[in-house]
Design a binder for these strands. Structure first.
Length: 193
DNA sequence: TAAACGATGCCCT
DNA sequence: GGGCATCGTTTAC
């Protein structure tokens, strides 16, 4: 059984963590997937919730690294982030897509869909598939909800601009495994070998 | 009290 | 495959 990533892993520049999280696994109560898409957010740029300073909602985001920051989007979807950098900084990696690994049936039941590709190919979809809700906001990422080190071959990393935001769109802080078909749209081209 | 902020799903071509 | 309609919370005024 593999040990989850320790809090120290997250206590580093958020862009580095975002890049290295591609290929890692997210597991919640026996249901898991391989991370194929992430985005970095830092309090110094306006697309980050921490940009506005500490508010009731972003308290966890400004807290200790290695914990889950879960927030509601569109009033419906829970989005999963991993808090990074030192305690008090305000930075996180948004997990945008997974490739299903364990508990496919559970995922399909929660999602109301069967095709594996549609189970976790979006930030709101993967939280629904894994059963991650706002109740997990602030919880450590080495407990019932955990992120585990990568196994198998390294991903074909593609870098691009973040999506779904209106500010600081030019920052190349989106990382994908270009070899996966579970990445949320728009797909990124393979890196030029 | 009011405006801003997003991801998904369905209907269409 | 692509475009359009949808909701609730948070923060600012």
């Amino acid at each position: 059984m593999t040990a989850p990533l320790a809090p120290a892993f997250y206590d580093r520049p958020v862009v580095d963590v975002a890049r290295e999280l591609v290929g890692c696994h997210v597991r919640h109560e026996g249901v898991s997937g391989r991370i194929v898409e992430t985005e970095a957010y830092h309090f110094t740029e306006p697309a980050c919730h921490a940009y506005a300073g500490v508010t009731p909602r972003t308290r966890v985001l400004h807290g200790a690294p290695g914990r889950a920051y879960v927030y509601l989007s569109y009033g419906i979807h829970s989005l999963l982030n991993a808090v990074c950098e030192a305690d008090g900084v305000g930075a996180a990696v948004l997990i945008r897509a997974l490739e299903p690994l364990e508990g496919l049936e559970q995922m399909a039941a929660r999602r109301g869909r069967d095709r594996p590709r549609e189970l976790c190919n979006g930030p709101g979809k993967l939280t629904q598939a894994l059963g991650i809700g706002l109740g997990l906001n602030g919880s450590a990422l080495d407990g019932p909800l955990a992120i585990l080190p990568p196994d198998g071959p390294p991903p074909r990393l593609a870098v691009g601009e973040r999506i779904g935001i209106t500010k600081a769109v030019e920052l190349p802080w989106r990382f994908c495994d270009a070899g996966s078909n579970c990445v949320s749209a728009p797909r990124l081209p393979l890196p030029t070998a």
